[in-house]
């Protein structure tokens, strides 16, 4: 073999090596997390859930858990893009003037008749809620089948520990998810109320279905309290504002919850109370 042949072969070898490298199919393999992110972007939520649930690698920063939570929420049909104004409306002072507050009755004195006192608390709560009913508008209405996915999303986000770097984000997300949960329960309490029409407290009382109230009301209040709890965690870590009206709503919910826990009214007592309210206010 002379020098020219050897040189030609070397060139050929180099050229072939380069060609093989260049034509090789893109080999950058994605990690499970990256693959799941891609699937979530493509709205293949169920595939992403399966992949992330079966991934047993360490999740030091909680990123995978938060992605899993958001995949559950996505599978439930929750989309933060649609519901952003709802979330931000709860948290920060809006630039636009808030709706004119309606007269809220002063906290009633506890009377001998506990049921009457409870009715007054419910009334106060509904009036506060009516002031903020525009926020319920942008909440996506979940189907009965997608409820467990939302619950799973909440449980997954709750599992992120304080030591993990995604903790604050997880708490923010919990505020959002719990408010969605709350909004959905509330919409179930008032099946005939159109929240686009800015209903008054009277509209809410008249649109309330006693049976739905019994099924959904306590859960709605629990979700709202969970949202407030998560919000409190964030507030202790970063400066944030909660809207004044939301603070009023929180106070109202707390009084109501306390009263429910103290009196433990039975179903027939609550039905009686609601019917009484409706008879007083609704034509």
């Amino acid at each position: 073999m002379n020098w020219t042949n050897a040189r030609r072969r070397s060139y050929l070898f180099l050229a072939l090596s380069l060609l093989l490298e260049a034509c090789q199919h893109k080999s950058a393999s994605l990690s499970n997390l990256e693959k799941a992110e891609q699937w979530v972007n493509e709205r293949r939520f169920q595939d992403a859930i399966t992949l992330l649930e079966n991934d047993v690698s360490k999740d030091a920063d909680g990123h995978r858990t938060l992605l899993l939570s958001s995949a559950y929420a996505g599978a439930a049909g929750i989309n933060l893009i649609d519901s952003y104004s709802f979330f931000s409306g709860f948290l920060i002072e809006s630039n636009s003037p808030p709706p004119k507050p309606r007269k809220i009755p002063s906290t009633p004195d506890k009377q001998k008749d506990n049921l009457q006192y409870l009715a007054q608390l419910v009334q106060a709560y509904l009036m506060t809620l009516a002031n903020e009913s525009h926020l319920l508008l942008s909440i996506p209405r979940l189907t009965k089948e997608s409820r467990p996915q939302l619950t799973q999303a909440i449980l997954t986000a709750e599992s992120i520990a304080k030591e993990q770097s995604t903790y604050v984000r997880a708490r923010q997300y919990l505020v959002f998810l719990n408010l969605i949960q709350f909004g959905n329960y509330m919409k179930n309490v008032f099946p005939s109320v159109d929240f686009a029409e800015n209903p008054s407290a009277i509209d809410l009382i008249c649109g309330m279905e006693p049976q739905s109230f019994l099924v959904n009301f306590e859960q709605a209040i629990s979700s709202f309290q969970a949202a407030v709890l998560a919000l409190g965690d964030i507030q202790s870590m970063k400066p944030m504002k909660m809207r004044t009206q939301i603070q009023e709503l929180t106070g109202s919910v707390e009084s109501l919850k306390k009263q429910f826990e103290t009196d433990r009214p039975n179903l027939s007592q609550i039905s009686l109370m609601l019917n009484g309210m409706q008879q007083s206010y609704c034509p």
């Binding site: 972007n41 939570s69 893009i81």
Partner: peptide, 8 residues
């Protein structure tokens, strides 16, 4: 880059 329509 935008990621995750559920939690953008």
């Amino acid at each position: 880059k935008l990621n995750n329509p559920s939690l953008p």
